[in-house]
Measured scan of single mutants.
Amino acid sequence: HMTFVALYDYVASGETDLSFKKGERLQIVNNTEGDWWLAHSLTTGRTGYIPSNYVAPSD
């Protein structure tokens, strides 16, 4: 899985979304859904959809 880092805080707007904090590391499970990607937080262990423009590839 690709690892990304959150650029901003995001508060989930629905049950399927994943809240995260700036700097949180996320594994992308599925990024074929356009602007919303299914991600797994390496910080909280939770999985949900995130806005793709809130994250950047982590080196």
Rank of each mutant, 00 (worst) to 15 (best):
S52G: 07
D59Y: 09
V11P: 05
E24T: 02
Y54M: 12
A39H: 00
K21F: 09
Y54H: 09
D9F: 02
R25N: 08
S41M: 02
D9L: 01
T32Q: 14
N30C: 12
G23V: 00
P57A: 11
D59G: 15
E15H: 11
G23A: 04
L42S: 05
R46L: 14
F20T: 02
G48S: 01
N53M: 10
T44N: 06
G45K: 06
E15Y: 09
G48A: 04
K22Y: 04
K22H: 05
G23F: 04
H40G: 04
K22S: 06
D59K: 11
N31V: 12
P57W: 08
Y49W: 15
I28A: 08
V11L: 07
N30F: 09
L18W: 03
G45L: 07
R25S: 08
G45R: 06
L7M: 09
S13M: 14
I28E: 00
M2R: 14
V5K: 05
V11N: 12
Y49E: 03
T16N: 14
Y8M: 11
T3Y: 15
F20G: 00
I50V: 11
I50A: 02
L7F: 03
D59E: 14
A6G: 06
D35F: 14
I28W: 02
G48D: 01
L7T: 04
T16Q: 14
T43W: 09
Q27K: 14
S58K: 08
Y49K: 07
V5L: 07
T32M: 12
Y10K: 03
N53F: 09
V55W: 04
R46H: 09
L26S: 00
Q27S: 09
D59A: 13
V29N: 05
G45H: 15
P57Y: 08
Y8S: 07
V5W: 05
L38E: 05
H40Q: 13
T16F: 15
I28N: 04
D9H: 03
G48F: 04
D35E: 12
A56H: 08
W37E: 01
S41W: 00
S19H: 04
F20I: 09
A56I: 14
F20W: 01
E24D: 12
L18E: 02
L38Q: 04
N53I: 10
E33T: 13
Y49M: 11
N31M: 15
E15K: 12
R46C: 09
G14A: 13
T32R: 08
H40N: 07
L18A: 05
M2T: 13
R46E: 10
T43Q: 10
S13T: 15
R46V: 06
S19M: 06
V55D: 02
S41P: 00
A56T: 13
G34Y: 08
P57Q: 10
E15T: 13
L18K: 01
A39D: 00
G34F: 09
F4Q: 04
M2P: 15
A39F: 02
V55I: 07
V29H: 15
I50W: 00
L26T: 00
E24P: 00
Y10C: 04
N31L: 12
F4R: 05
G23D: 05
V5Q: 06
A39R: 00
Y54N: 04
L26R: 00
I50L: 04
W37T: 04
H1K: 13
V5G: 01
N53V: 09
G23N: 05
V5H: 05
R46A: 11
A56G: 10
G23M: 03
Y8V: 07
L26A: 00
L18R: 01
T3N: 07
H1C: 14
D9G: 04
L18S: 03
R25W: 14
L38K: 04
V5F: 07
E15R: 09
S13L: 13
G45V: 01
H40S: 09
N53K: 12
Y49N: 05
P57C: 08
N30M: 10
G48N: 01
S13I: 14
D59N: 13
T16R: 13
D9E: 07
S52C: 10
R25C: 12
H40K: 15
T47N: 08
Y54Q: 05
Y8I: 07
V5T: 10
Y10V: 02
S41V: 02
P57H: 08
K21V: 11
Y54T: 06
G14R: 15
D9N: 06
D17P: 02
V29M: 15
T3M: 13
A12F: 02
S13H: 13
T32H: 10
I28R: 06
D9M: 02
A39V: 12
S52R: 11
V5M: 07
A6E: 00
E33I: 13
T3P: 06
S13D: 08
V11F: 09
Y49T: 05
P51Q: 05
D59L: 13
V29P: 05
Y8P: 00
L38W: 11
D17Q: 15
W36V: 06
D9R: 01
T43I: 12
L26N: 00
G34K: 15
W36G: 02
H40A: 09
N30K: 09
L26D: 00
S19V: 04
E24Y: 01
D9P: 04
